[in-house]
């Protein structure tokens, strides 16, 4: 690996791949992800049945070294399960430094991992890259937000955990008047309702132009529970078409941030 990094389309290194690994596991509900290295950061995206699109975004400042050639697109499909397993090769108790190399289109993604506490061990991984599938454009650029909420991630996780498992539909009711934020679930035999008052510390900020009632598959929302568990803050945005966007922020000890994003398509009224 002594070659000059400029002949690689993408190189990056970080002191510990642990946070990255847990972020990737949080969106690992599909076998493969689209790996996209942008000049400002690394993004991995997965889709579930054209209804949910989840991405992990790691801004470049999380890496000690980050380099993408500006004359090429670095985008390919990769096995997310294998990538997460490789990052965890020394076990979850071990912090291991990580280097990534990607030479050119069609070449494998190379990882070099070295644990911080044992210097005499090293792991090389070559993960094959594939041609990426086209991703859904769920939100058109001219679409605007009609409601925006900032919620503590732990609180939203608790709410989703409390919701009856057998329910399949989750309804979000947002209105400028109290009660501002209500979550209703419909199950086989029951209907449950959770009201979150604006003054609670769960809700850090709330803005909503008009009254909204939006329905989602509960299963789709539950996909972001793993990400909620490792994040600090979540921003919920509802667009005029009812598309729900959850933006989750994971704050690391060193004041660096990583993000995950979930786009969830609404259920239409029948």
């Amino acid at each position: 690996m002594a070659e000059d990094s400029s002949q690689y389309h993408f190189t990056a290194s970080m002191d510990s791949g642990k946070t990255l690994c847990s972020l990737l596991k949080a969106i690992q509900f599909q076998e493969s992800a689209v790996f996209c290295a942008l000049p400002e950061g690394l993004k991995l995206t997965v889709e579930e049945g054209k209804c949910v699109q989840a991405s992990a975004y790691i801004p470049a400042d999380n890496f000690t070294e980050y380099h993408v050639r500006d004359d090429v697109d670095v985008i390919f499909k990769i096995s997310l399960a294998v990538l997460a397993e490789c990052l965890n090769i020394f076990g979850s108790g071990e912090e291991a430094s990580l280097k990534m190399y990607y030479k050119c289109e069609g070449s494998p993604l190379l990882l070099v991992l070295q644990p911080q506490s044992f210097r005499n061990v090293m792991t090389d991984c070559e993960i094959w890259s594939q041609t990426p599938d086209s991703m859904l454009e769920l939100r058109s650029p001219e679409e605007t937000d009609v409601a925006k909420l900032v919620v503590r991630a732990g609180a939203l996780l608790a709410v989703l955990g409390d919701v009856e498992r057998s329910a399949d539909v989750l309804e979000l009711r947002l209105q400028p008047e109290p009660p501002h934020f209500t979550i209703v679930t419909y199950g086989m035999q029951d209907r449950s309702c959770i009201e979150v008052p604006e003054c609670s510390d769960t809700l850090q900020s709330f803005s909503c132009e008009r009254e909204l009632t939006l329905k989602y598959q509960l299963h789709h929302l539950r996909l972001c529970m793993k990400a909620l568990a490792i994040s600090n803050k979540v921003v919920l945005r509802c667009s005029s078409t009812g598309l729900l966007l959850l933006q989750l922020k994971l704050e690391r000890d060193d004041n660096k941030h990583m993000f995950s994003e979930f786009y969830i398509v609404p259920l239409l009224d029948d």
């Binding site: 090769i89 005499n120 061990v121 090293m122 991984c125 070559e126 094959w128």
Partner: peptide, 14 residues
């Protein structure tokens, strides 16, 4: 050697 990857871990100075 897996379907999607090749992984090797080396321990040195043994």
């Amino acid at each position: 050697r897996a379907d999607m990857a090749k992984v090797s871990t080396r321990f040195k100075d043994l």
